[in-house]
Simulated scan of single mutants.
Amino acid sequence: MQRSRIAVIVGSTREGRVGDGVGRWVADVAARRADVEPVVLDLADYDFPPCYPSRPTPEIRRFTGQVADADGFVVVTPEYNRSFPASLKQAIDYAYDEWHAKPAGFVSYGYRSEGFHAVEHLRSVFTELHVMTVRTNVGVNLLADEPLDTEHRRRAADAMFDQLTWWASALKDARTRRPYVS
């Protein structure tokens, strides 16, 4: 079985964030699978410019190169004001063709809504980038007094990875046979 290279993108760069822990959990779940080769892209590890530059910086090229090398993505996002953070939008916008004809899944966190509003906004953005978003996602309610690694979250993550790897394989085969036209 060929392993899909799945980039786990940690979208929050705030001090005191929980996204890095959620991202590690997602990468651990992925690493236990025979069909996934996870790579973590934590946006806090990139020195992106504060304003969109006229030419890509080395850090932008490093990020977009990782996006290009991935077969699919899991975006780990908080919900801030019923949407996703600006740091994530900035990083998404640095790439364009690199996203095309690849799948994405979502792991979101927030209060009560578990970050689902952020996911719905991300689905619209990724549709514009020709990304196939999978139906099943994982949500974390930060108000709940429970550990991150629960049975129901593991089942949801496994279902998301099942869908993600199916699409990653199918779309990789399709891109190999014929270049994607956008």
Score class of each variant (00 low, 15 high):
88 L>M: 03
88 L>R: 00
89 K>R: 06
89 K>S: 02
89 K>C: 01
90 Q>S: 05
90 Q>V: 00
90 Q>E: 08
91 A>Y: 06
91 A>T: 03
91 A>M: 08
92 I>D: 03
92 I>L: 13
92 I>S: 01
92 I>M: 08
93 D>I: 01
93 D>P: 06
93 D>T: 05
94 Y>A: 02
94 Y>R: 05
95 A>K: 10
96 Y>H: 12
97 D>N: 15
97 D>Y: 14
98 E>Y: 10
98 E>D: 08
99 W>L: 05
99 W>G: 05
100 H>E: 14
100 H>F: 13
101 A>F: 08
102 K>S: 11
102 K>N: 09
103 P>Q: 10
103 P>A: 06
104 A>P: 03
105 G>Y: 05
106 F>E: 13
106 F>M: 14
107 V>G: 11
108 S>C: 13
108 S>M: 14
109 Y>Q: 04
109 Y>N: 06
109 Y>T: 08
110 G>V: 02
110 G>F: 00
110 G>M: 01
111 Y>K: 12
114 E>F: 02
114 E>I: 06
114 E>C: 12
114 E>M: 13
115 G>K: 01
116 F>W: 02
116 F>K: 04
116 F>L: 10
116 F>N: 04
116 F>P: 04
117 H>C: 09
117 H>G: 10
117 H>T: 08
118 A>Q: 05
119 V>A: 09
119 V>C: 09
120 E>D: 10
120 E>N: 11
121 H>A: 07
123 R>S: 05
124 S>V: 15
125 V>L: 12
125 V>C: 10
125 V>R: 06
125 V>S: 12
126 F>N: 03
127 T>E: 08
127 T>W: 14
128 E>G: 15
128 E>K: 10
129 L>T: 06
130 H>K: 15
130 H>L: 14
131 V>D: 03
132 M>C: 11
134 V>W: 07
135 R>L: 14
137 N>Y: 14
137 N>S: 15
137 N>L: 13
137 N>M: 14
138 V>F: 01
138 V>R: 02
138 V>L: 06
139 G>Y: 12
141 N>C: 11
142 L>C: 14
143 L>F: 15
144 A>R: 13
144 A>L: 14
144 A>D: 15
145 D>C: 05
145 D>N: 14
146 E>I: 00
146 E>Q: 03
146 E>P: 01
146 E>W: 01
147 P>V: 03
148 L>F: 04
148 L>G: 03
148 L>V: 07
149 D>T: 00
149 D>Y: 00
149 D>I: 00
150 T>M: 02
150 T>I: 00
150 T>D: 04
151 E>W: 04
151 E>F: 04
151 E>M: 06
151 E>D: 13
151 E>L: 08
152 H>M: 04
152 H>Y: 02
152 H>F: 02
153 R>Y: 00
154 R>W: 00
154 R>P: 00
156 A>K: 01
157 A>M: 11
157 A>P: 12
158 D>E: 12
158 D>M: 00
159 A>S: 12
163 Q>P: 07
165 T>E: 05
165 T>R: 07
166 W>M: 07
166 W>L: 13
166 W>D: 08
